[in-house]
Amino acid sequence: MQIVFGGAFNGKRQFVKQQVKLDEWSWYEGICPESISEPAVIAGFENWVKLQLQNEISEEEILQQVKKVSQQAGSSEQIWILTDMNRGIVPIDPVERELRDVIGRIYQYLFAEAQQITRIWYGIPQIIKGADHCENLYKNR
């Protein structure tokens, strides 16, 4: 499983579209389906999490669903596009505060699972996990 991570409007989707043959991959936008059979891109993930929270689905249930989906990455490839939303100030809106906490914890789970993580900064990719010899940032814990 791979993750492409970065702030909004930084060119994450554009980067993924350059990496994969789009006609061979399924593109899931704002949804996180239970079973994924083909190579898949999961994008707009934060919108899906927000929707779950609005429907009063618990963080635990959301995490279980995420685990179920990401564990299928063993048999077919997955790229998760995750938006970094957690570097700003604490939001006034309680829904946003909850969303921020929940995606923060889910991202930690997904980051631990991923074989490779690429951070995109205004179109420039930087591998922050899984680059073999080129980096050792992720070993610094």
Binding site: A8, M85, R87, G88
Partner: peptide, 8 residues
């Protein structure tokens, strides 16, 4: 400024 890694 870096402001794109916050809420919309």
């Amino acid at each position: 400024n870096e402001i794109l890694d916050d809420f919309m």
